[in-house]
Computed example of a mutant assay.
Amino acid sequence: MGRKRKGRDISGWLVVDKPAGVTSTAVVNKVRWAFDAKKAGHAGTLDPDATGVLAVALGEATKTVPYITDALKAYEFTVRFGEATRTDDAEGDVIATSPLRPSDDDIKEALHGFVGEIMQVPPQFSAVKIDGERAYKLARDGEDIDLAARPLWVEELTLLDRPDEDHAVLMMVCGKGGYVRSIARDLGETLGCLGHVRTLRRIWSGPFSTDDALSLEQIDAMAKSSELDTFLKPLQTGLADLPELSCNAEAATRLRNGNPGKVITSGVDYGEECWVSLDGVPVAVGRYKAGEVHPTRVFVTT
């Protein structure tokens, strides 16, 4: 039998403004320590040198992580033209250069080809698995990696600023699985001048934005205190894109035991995914079928 993890049974979301030079895992560990929480996870990895919104789930909120992972996200990033790097960002060695530089109009025109449903090849230095191995490990070992293109939905991609001829600041709103480094690489290739990501910041992810985020310094200052608890968002924040249905106490018990439970419905289609609450407290997530919800995830919070 595994050892029971010590800590508080606390559930909810904390929005962190991740600094550069720190891994997403390190941020999760810091948050779990600060709350003395039993369980924590995050919704969407940021590269170590990237900054911005990292939504950290505690306790039962970890069951809602997939809904944030699947939600739209927005990134602001700077592309450096004229250089291709091994990692598609500023950390990698420069592997090719070009004297060409695009005009603003060239950039705006090229961006149209990166909006909508596109096919994207992940960077070689990425967490994509190949035969059970991470691509970045194979790349570090010098192996020639052939990564398959995968679909990505890009809602918006716009030019925000042009500080100089070598750089452009862009903003992208995209779905799950988007690699900003690939966008920069492919944009540079399309423009014939090469390119890589210089800086990257996630400005919002689903319902979470930098406006709500705490720095690691703030978390450190409030660690193990009731003050930090006040910044915790309820676990149902991660269910913002799903319709909410209510139920009575009897149905709540059935749902929490993994059985279908009757709900009060309003405009939910047969088979639609939704979440169920009792007096505002999340009970379960499941599929609506003929007056009942068949649970796929249940919550034990009270």
Score class of each variant (00 low, 15 high):
17 D>K: 10
179 Y>A: 04
190 T>K: 15
64 T>H: 00
297 R>D: 10
201 R>W: 01
170 L>Q: 08
142 G>W: 00
16 V>L: 01
49 D>V: 06
66 P>N: 13
28 V>H: 10
130 I>T: 02
142 G>I: 08
147 L>V: 01
251 A>Q: 07
204 W>L: 12
94 V>E: 03
279 D>C: 05
107 I>H: 08
157 L>R: 06
85 T>Q: 11
7 G>D: 03
194 L>N: 11
225 S>G: 06
38 K>E: 14
136 Y>V: 00
196 H>R: 02
180 V>H: 08
165 E>M: 05
263 V>Y: 04
247 C>P: 03
287 R>W: 08
246 S>Q: 11
58 L>A: 08
144 D>N: 14
84 A>R: 12
116 G>E: 03
88 D>K: 03
132 G>S: 10
214 L>Y: 00
139 A>R: 10
277 S>W: 02
58 L>Q: 04
5 R>E: 13
189 E>A: 13
235 L>G: 04
102 P>Y: 14
208 F>C: 15
199 T>L: 01
280 G>M: 10
13 W>R: 10
15 V>C: 14
275 W>V: 04
17 D>I: 08
226 S>Y: 00
23 T>Q: 12
11 S>A: 06
50 A>T: 04
146 D>S: 12
120 Q>V: 04
112 H>N: 11
266 S>D: 15
203 I>V: 15
258 G>H: 06
263 V>A: 09
231 F>W: 11
270 Y>K: 13
268 V>Q: 13
228 L>H: 05
181 R>D: 01
10 I>S: 06
109 E>K: 15
275 W>M: 07
100 L>M: 09
224 K>W: 05
72 L>D: 15
227 E>R: 11
300 V>W: 13
77 F>H: 04
131 D>L: 11
198 R>H: 09
116 G>M: 10
83 E>M: 11
11 S>R: 04
226 S>D: 15
247 C>H: 04
83 E>N: 05
244 E>F: 01
241 D>R: 10
25 T>L: 12
76 E>R: 15
95 I>Y: 10
225 S>Q: 03
277 S>I: 01
222 M>E: 05
198 R>F: 04
263 V>N: 12
255 L>T: 00
281 V>A: 13
162 R>Q: 07
164 D>V: 00
92 G>P: 03
196 H>N: 05
100 L>R: 14
203 I>N: 10
28 V>M: 09
166 D>K: 13
240 A>E: 15
27 V>I: 15
113 G>V: 08
64 T>L: 00
72 L>H: 13
264 I>R: 15
17 D>G: 05
281 V>T: 14
293 V>Y: 03
95 I>W: 08
177 G>H: 08
177 G>W: 07
17 D>F: 14
147 L>H: 01
20 A>K: 09
9 D>G: 07
10 I>C: 08
143 E>C: 07
157 L>K: 06
183 I>Y: 02
241 D>Y: 06
93 D>V: 11
262 K>S: 15
207 P>E: 03
141 D>V: 02
292 E>F: 10
